[in-house]
Design a protein around this nucleic acid. Sequence first.
DNA 1: CGTGAGTTTGATTCCATTCAATCGAGGTGG
DNA 2: CCACCTCGATTGAATGGAATCAAACTCACG
Lengths: 251, 251
Amino acid sequence: MDKDNDLTIRQPVAAKPKIPPPSIFAKPFARSTDPGVVQLLTEDEQAALIAISRVVEFRRHTVIYPEGGRSRFVYNVISGVAETYCLLPDGERRVSSFLFPSDLLGLSENGEYVATAQALTPLTAYKMPFEDLARLVRRDPDLDVVFLCKLCHELRQAERHTVTAIHNDARARVAGFILWLWRSEVTALTDDTTVTLPMLRHDIADYLGLSTEAISRALHQLETGGLIQRRGPRALQLLNIQELRRAAREI
Amino acid sequence: MDKDNDLTIRQPVAAKPKIPPPSIFAKPFARSTDPGVVQLLTEDEQAALIAISRVVEFRRHTVIYPEGGRSRFVYNVISGVAETYCLLPDGERRVSSFLFPSDLLGLSENGEYVATAQALTPLTAYKMPFEDLARLVRRDPDLDVVFLCKLCHELRQAERHTVTAIHNDARARVAGFILWLWRSEVTALTDDTTVTLPMLRHDIADYLGLSTEAISRALHQLETGGLIQRRGPRALQLLNIQELRRAAREI
DNA sequence: CGTGAGTTTGATTCCATTCAATCGAGGTGG
DNA sequence: CCACCTCGATTGAATGGAATCAAACTCACG
C-alpha cells in the first residue's frame, strides 16, 4: 500500500502522493485460505489500471453520471460515499445501492448507465474508459477473473439485501443496515464502534423500502433497547453489537 | 441451433438428439444493434462448453446442490425451472431466485454454494466442473466477457427485483412477477398469453416478501379487474398486458 | 436571531399478516 | 368407478405494523 509510488511515478496523472491504488475487494468464488474479503488485484494489475485511469474528484451531491447517459467510464471509488438511484415515470426516486471505497460504479446496459450515480460526500475515484478496460481485461485473463469474482460478490450481496429487506420489519432492517455500514467503513480494522450515516434519512428509507418516519422510530427503538446511541442525526455509537446482530436476524 | 450435431457427435455423453446447446442470454453491457437479450455464446464456445459438460437430469423437487456444500459444478439449465433458497437459523426458508432455461446455477462463496438449488419441474442441465470452466475461461477471453455480461445482467435484474419488490404493494408485485414469468418462458416468441406457475404459492410469496394469502388476494384483484384469468392454480391467461404493465408500475 | 431543511414525534388510516375455516384437485385404496 | 383423504389454494374476520398526515423540534447557516 505504501510502496505503490514506484507505480504512480510512471503515471504523472495519478501521481499525487498518498492516493491508494485501485482496489477491488471480494470474497473469492473458489475456496481460499482467508474466508473474508480479500484484495483481488495484484500490484501489476493495479499499475495497469492506473495506466488507463484518471483520478477524478466530485463535490457533495454532484452527479457522477446520469441514468440513460452514454456509458463511457467505469469508476473505482477511492474515498467517499456514493449512491445510485433510478427515476420512476411518476417522478419517484428509488435508491438502488450505496457505494464505498474500493467499490465499482458504472453498471450499464446496451451502452447506457442503468442508474444515476451521485456523490453523498466529497468523493475521489479512478475513472477508467470502458474501451480501455475492456481491452485490458481481454488481454489479461487474471484481471478478468478479478472482475468475475467482484460481480459474483455483488450479486450475492444484492440477493442478501433483497432477502433481508423484504422479510424483516423496520427495526431489523435498520439494525442490518447499521451493521452493514459499520462493516463497510474501512475503519472496521480498528475497534471503533462509531458509525456515520453519510446519507439522508430519505435515502436510507428508500433503500430499505420504508418511510423516513419509520427509520426514526426504528432508531428510537434500538436506542431505547440500549443497542445504539444517537450522537446527532449523522452519527451512531454501537453499544451492543451482539444484540444488534440478533435484531438484524443475522443470528 | 439445428446444426449443432457436428459438435455433439464428438461428445457421446451429451450426444442425445434434440438437446439444445449451452446457452447464455443477456442484454450486453456495451451498446449493440439489438437492444434486447441476445445469445452471447458463439458456436465454438458452445462446443467448448459441451466438451467439458455432462447433461444431467433431475426429477421434480430434487435438490441439485445444497447450501454450504462444496461447490464443484456450475449448471446451465436446458429445460425446466429451479429455485434457490437459504435456510435461516430459525428454520425459515427464504427463496432467493428462480432459474429458467439458459440460466446459470452454482453461485458460491469461498468454495461453498451460497444457497440450496432445487428443481421445481423435471429439469435438464449442462453440468460443468468448476475447474474446467475456470481453465476454459482463462484461455478464452471472449468467453470470459460472456460471463461478465451475464453476471452484469443478473446484477441488474437483482437490483430491479429488490427495488420493485420493496416499494410496491401486493397487487403490483404479483403483476410484475407474472410479467417476468411470461417473459422468461421461451414461448415468448409466439403470441402465447398463457403463463404457467411451476412453483407453489408459498414459493412465490416468499420470493415477493408476501404471505400466500396475499398472493391469492392479489390474483383475485387482477382477475376481477379483467387483467388476467385463472385457469386452475397453476395456469394464468393474460388478458390485458398493457394494464398488467401499468399495474406492475412498469409504465 | 431568524430561517429553512431535515429529523423526530404524535394520531389516524390503510394494507398485509395472522388465525381460522372452507374449497378444490390429485392420489390412493376399497 | 367412486368415496375418501390430504395437501394446497382460497376466502373471511381480526390484529398489527408501517404509511400517511400533521405538527414540533434541532441544527447549520446567513
